[in-house]
Design a binder for these strands. Structure first.
Lengths: 142, 142
DNA sequence: CTGGTTGCAAAATTTTTGCACACTC
DNA sequence: GAGTGTGCAAAAATTTTGCAACCAG
């Protein structure tokens, strides 16, 4: 799928553009995460990188960096290790398969109009929201 | 506010109704969590319970139990310790203040109609979603 | 009473850090 | 070459567990 390649490329570009060096470990982590379409833990990535010689510490450091740059996101797989997920820069939402872990992104946000409603009801000044759908992906519906 | 008292009472009732003993540590954890209207970590609760002699292990065990019973929920305060939050049994969503941690529940769910839309687009079989709004509560808007 | 529950302390897990060396720009 | 970034191993932080004693029902 062409889109993903672009996204990966952009991510790598972003890292450099913001003044961070594009080292081999970073490149490998970003590539692996971006090819993955799933939410994974730091140790998942470490395992996936296997004999490619990236330390677990660097996986953590790179993931933190990606989150900071908005190139990855943490998802609440509650009661579990922290999971990370590649994502494009724009606001969007994820659909996660509870069976196999596949993640799909929704390209648009459905909720903008609701923030005003919530503000009115709660008197909060809302400046964002997090939304995840859970279910079974096409392949896991048997 | 009357509602909260009810919710606490119901929670304690639920624990017993489902065959779990209502011990002093459990009661204390449930009471503290339910009076709190904020997302807290296990160690927050442990600290809050202070000299009341509840072990950290029991705080964790009780929180796990509450989540299992649907009486509490974990929230994704990402990159941080696991946070827990009292909640009523029905499906609902939270509005969290990023400044002081106050949490408000939205009584109804705005998203039911969207699940069908998401199913159509993604071919997932959606069976749930998690939604949190973030912002500043009335008191923190200065 | 009796079995579920607790506290404690130890273990397991997850994440962060210090430091000498390596690599990107 | 300069200074960021890395690996390693140790430390910190968080969560789970084994077990004898305890207590709610």
């Amino acid at each position: 799928m062409q889109m993903n390649r672009n996204t990966l490329t952009n991510a790598l570009r972003q890292v450099q553009a913001r003044g961070y060096k594009l080292t081999q470990p970073r490149r490998l982590v970003v590539e692996t995460l971006y090819r993955l379409h799933r939410a994974v833990t730091a140790s998942d990535l470490y395992r996936l990188l296997g004999r490619r010689g990236v330390s677990l510490a660097s996986v953590y450091r790179t993931l933190d960096l990606l989150v900071e740059l908005g190139l990855a996101e943490t998802v609440a797989h509650p009661g579990d290790e922290q999971h990370f997920l590649a994502c494009s820069l724009d606001h969007h939402h994820h659909v996660l398969c509870d069976r196999c872990g596949l993640v799909t992104e929704l390209e648009e946000c459905l909720l903008g109009p609701f923030e005003a409603l919530v503000e009115e009801r709660t008197k909060f000044a809302i400046d964002g929201h997090a939304l995840e759908f859970h279910g079974r992906c096409a392949g896991c519906q048997v």
